[in-house]
């Protein structure tokens, strides 16, 4: 079994209305050191098998085909 974590974030330059709202709320709570907040998504995926190279290829393909929209998002694949 291979465990992986995929992180999807908005590309630089893409406005993030949700991140902005969270940023405002953190600031209102007194966290004055917050410069900016970008919201993203995390997927924890378990894969059958033990081949990490194949797993990584498969995970990248999942990101390109479904888990991220590459028009607006970047993704990172990490095998845990």
């Amino acid at each position: 079994m291979i465990k992986a974590r995929i992180t999807v974030t908005l590309k630089e330059g893409v406005l993030d209305p949700q991140g902005k709202a969270i940023e405002g709320s953190l600031s209102a709570l007194g966290f004055k050191d917050v410069g900016s907040v970008r919201q993203g998504k995390v997927f924890d995926i378990e894969l059958k098998g033990e081949n990490k190279v194949e797993a990584e290829q498969s995970l990248n393909s999942m990101c390109a085909k479904l888990l991220s929209n590459t028009v607006i998002e970047d993704y990172r694949v990490a095998i845990i």
Binding site: V14, P17, Q18, A21, N69, V71, I72
Partner: peptide, 17 residues
């Protein structure tokens, strides 16, 4: 249609949330 790649661009959350 945008997600399927039949149209360019993407839809984001409304700016006013």
């Amino acid at each position: 249609l945008a997600e399927a790649g039949l149209l360019p661009g993407a839809m984001m959350r409304n700016s006013g949330l």
